[in-house]
């Protein structure tokens, strides 16, 4: 009888070793970025092996940390390499004419029902997909402001939990929706960040 946890750790450590070995041998900037993405996946495997509710609650922050660092680094890489001309055309295949609005709407609605982190990620993905087929336009400031305010709302919700625990109901509603708006807004910003800054 092999203990399950040790078996899982064996797989996770082996994956970590392989991933880091590849990173050690790699010299190209973009390849390194891709490998860091791989490392993030292995990180989550370590947490997922715990199998408790806490593990799940730790995976969500871990995920968001990974993707946010990826976003920041990819932008630094772009500036560093001097890629300044925005990409011109979008994907011109027939499924892109019909699929995005429907799929995006489904995902956004489902994300709003989910709320919280998961909802934010799902809805954000939907919005990105929608922006793929449309011109993003000048909505950057608005989305950013919304996300800033929702962040503040979440902080307020946190303090309600800590200072006035009897109002937990209000706090959980506030927190759930604030995180939803926050994560969704941030993710959808990537969709608008494809083209020209002044588009």
């Amino acid at each position: 009888m092999i203990p399950v946890y040790s078996l899982g750790l064996l797989g996770a450590f082996a994956s970590a070793g392989i991933a880091f070995y590849a990173l050690m041998r790699e010299t190209d900037g973009l390849h390194r970025l891709l490998l860091t993405d791989l490392v993030e996946v292995v990180t989550l495997a370590f947490i997922a092996l715990l199998g408790t509710d806490l593990a799940e609650a730790l995976i969500l922050p871990g995920l968001v940390v990974g993707v946010s660092e990826l976003i920041a680094l990819s932008e630094i890489f772009r500036i560093k390499e001097g890629y300044t001309r925005p990409p011109a055309d979008t994907l011109q295949i027939e499924v892109m004419n019909t699929a995005p609005p429907i799929l995006a709407a489904l995902l956004v609605i489902y994300g709003i029902i989910l709320s919280g982190f998961s909802g934010g990620a799902v809805a954000g993905l939907g919005v990105i997909f929608y922006f793929l087929s449309r011109d993003p336009g000048e909505r950057f400031e608005l989305i950013e402001t919304a996300s800033g305010y929702s962040w503040v709302l979440w902080i307020i919700a946190f303090f309600i939990f800590m200072v006035f625990p009897q109002h937990w109901f209000f706090a959980v509603m506030l927190a759930g929706s604030a995180i939803l708006v926050k994560v969704m807004a941030k993710m959808s910003l990537i969709g608008t960040m494809r083209g020209d800054p002044d588009a």
């Binding site: 994907l91 499924v95 892109m96 799929l103 489904l106 995902l107 993905l125 997909f129």
Partner: peptide
């Protein structure tokens, strides 16, 4: 099953 094709696209 809805998200997987989006990643492919």
């Amino acid at each position: 099953s809805l998200i997987a094709p989006i990643a492919t696209i």
